[in-house]
Design a protein around this nucleic acid. Structure first.
Lengths: 162, 162
DNA sequence: GTGCCTGATTCACACAGACGAAACGGAATG
DNA sequence: CATTCCGTTTCGTCTGTGTGAATCAGGCAC
């Protein structure tokens, strides 16, 4: 539940990660063009029943929309998740493929290194840097890479905690 | 625009064929669970602006939902997409045809080159320039060509990000 | 706790290669 | 003719990738 337009930033963030949202359109403002099917709006004041009905409706639509529940990577290095398409560079694509083979599970640094550089591996830091870059690329698509110290990394759907 | 629940049957029919619809929920009735993303409802009386905004929103969602609605290119080199018609020059038309065969997927530069110049290919930059020109032509029609570095290009529906 | 070691994060930089854009001139079209 | 089409050259920009160094963070020894 987001105020519009005063909380526009938050709304964009939610939209980016595919979370359903209900906008409370403030006096005089006009509702924005919805970026997906998981957005609705109301103009307060409004009856409790109306609010509940609309909430239910978007949630219901959300469940219809769970097509790509897990990210997929095609052979051309395009990562698809929900409605997002993220093009990945060659090294990043290979590393990501390794992470996807164990989605939501830990993959060791050595495994990622082998995946990313089939020939000879560069210095240790190269992998770190690629993980950093991957994180930035995937963030808008609602994915995140979590560090498991001294064990490896883990690819997961971004959560909403701050 | 359908009354609910008195015209339930009609609504079901529209839903069945995937037509966008706006329900006018009658006094005392509760809006139904939406069967898809192309349905919304309002409870009269309602302001004209509100009505227009909601109509626009479903239509906009409808266009997002046309994964199946792709641009088409006829044999005279006219590209059609959503009401727009864009005439293409011969080379551009062949390149575009190749892009359309893999709509929303990557097509390599070499594949595009083969498509555009069945005989002998010109220099590397010729393709770049044609892509540039194509981009300018298609932009008004709501299409865009995305670069996937070192892999090729990808034709997609233009998004409205900033 | 304090201090230290090690692993992780992040930045800034260097470079090569891939792309993009503009401008030019000639050929084709109507 | 006036346009449109099309290939080339040139040059500037952006991206992918690896490296080194500074900073941060967790955990262990004391």
């Amino acid at each position: 539940m987001v105020r519009w337009p005063s909380e526009r930033q938050w709304r964009d963030a939610l939209a980016g990660q595919g979370t359903p949202r209900l906008l409370l359109v403030e006096e005089g403002a006009t509702p924005p063009d919805p970026p997906d099917c998981l957005e609705d709006w109301i103009r307060p004041p409004v009856a409790q029943a109306e609010l509940e009905a609309r909430t239910e409706a978007i949630v219901s639509r959300a469940s219809l929309h769970r097509h790509l529940a897990r990210p997929e990577l095609d052979e051309d290095g395009i990562l698809r998740f929900r409605t997002a398409r993220v093009p990945l560079a060659p090294v990043e694509a290979r590393v990501t493929a390794a992470l996807l083979e164990h989605f939501e599970a830990v993959v060791s640094r050595t495994a990622l290194t082998r995946a990313g550089w089939p020939g000879e591996a560069p210095k240790r830091n190269a992998l770190d840097v690629h993980v950093l870059r991957l994180r930035r690329r995937m963030a808008p698509a609602g994915l995140s890479i979590r560090t498991v110290r001294s064990r490896g990394y883990l690819l997961e759907v971004a959560t909403n905690d701050l």
